Simulated assay, not measured.
Amino acid sequence: MANQDTAGKIIQATIDLIQEKGYKATTTKAIAEKAGVNEVTIFRHFGSKRNILEAAVQKFSYVPLLSQTIREQIVWDLEKDLYLLAKRYMDYLVSIQDFVLIGFKEAGLFPEIDEEIANIPLELKNVLVDYFLQMEQKGKISCPNFEVAALQFIYMNFGFFISRARLGLKVSALSNEAYLRNSIKIFSRGMTP
């Protein structure tokens, strides 16, 4: 338990410092100071600054949450299921907004970080493709390309989240709830035979 608490402190200190200074300017010494640990402790737990960021990406991945939702709460009704997934996805993105925005701030500067971050939507895409395949096998949807459908679902939700996170209500005054209900209704109609 103490190891998890220490690791959590190191991850949070890293995120705070990257948000404040950027990835390159964040040193393991500064992370150790902010986390209240020795620099040696950082290397013992993670080995490198990059490994801390990889651990943070895994910690903040929403894929396990959405996979669990599919396993436990799906009712095989496209509109209801997609609304549930979109709501969980949006709520989770809002809860880790600062971390997501760090990813955009640092995008392209460190390809190895981009690779780690790209794994999250890639895994989500695969989970959604599997759900759509099962829905097709049940005769509940018709879609010429499940990968495109999964990406469209991800992009319509992530795009709204980013717009709201960066621009507030300047683009749209719709509530998250109104946006999700209406966008899922439109999306679902396009896949219903």
Rank of each mutant, 00 (worst) to 15 (best):
Y179A: 02
L151M: 12
S61T: 14
Q19C: 05
Q97I: 02
E115R: 15
I52M: 03
Q73V: 09
L133E: 13
Y89N: 14
E147S: 14
E106V: 15
V148A: 14
M90T: 11
A107G: 00
R166I: 13
L180I: 13
G168Q: 12
S188L: 09
Q12K: 14
S175I: 05
N119V: 10
E112L: 14
F161C: 05
M191H: 15
Q4P: 14
P193E: 09
N119A: 15
D98T: 15
F99E: 04
L128S: 08
N119D: 09
I96D: 00
L180Q: 12
V129Y: 04
A107K: 02
L151R: 12
I70S: 00
A7L: 03
A55P: 03
L53E: 07
R50V: 10
R88G: 02
F161Y: 07
Y62W: 06
V57S: 11
I31K: 02
I113G: 00
A150L: 15
F60A: 15
N38E: 08
N3W: 11
F158Y: 15
F60T: 12
W76H: 11
G168M: 11
V171I: 09
F187I: 12
Q134M: 14
I120D: 01
L128W: 09
L84C: 08
L53V: 10
I96E: 01
P121K: 13
I10K: 02
A13H: 00
P144T: 03
G108C: 01
I162C: 03
K185Q: 10
A118D: 11
A2K: 15
T69S: 09
I70D: 06
F46S: 01
I184H: 09
S172T: 05
I52R: 04
T14W: 00
G190M: 14
S175N: 01
E115P: 12
E123P: 08
E39L: 03
F99I: 06
D114Y: 08
N157H: 10
T27E: 06
L174K: 10
N176C: 12
I186R: 08
K185H: 15
I42T: 01
R166S: 13
I113K: 04
Y131H: 07
G103Y: 05
L78D: 07
D81H: 15
F158I: 13
T69W: 00
K87Y: 06
Y92T: 07
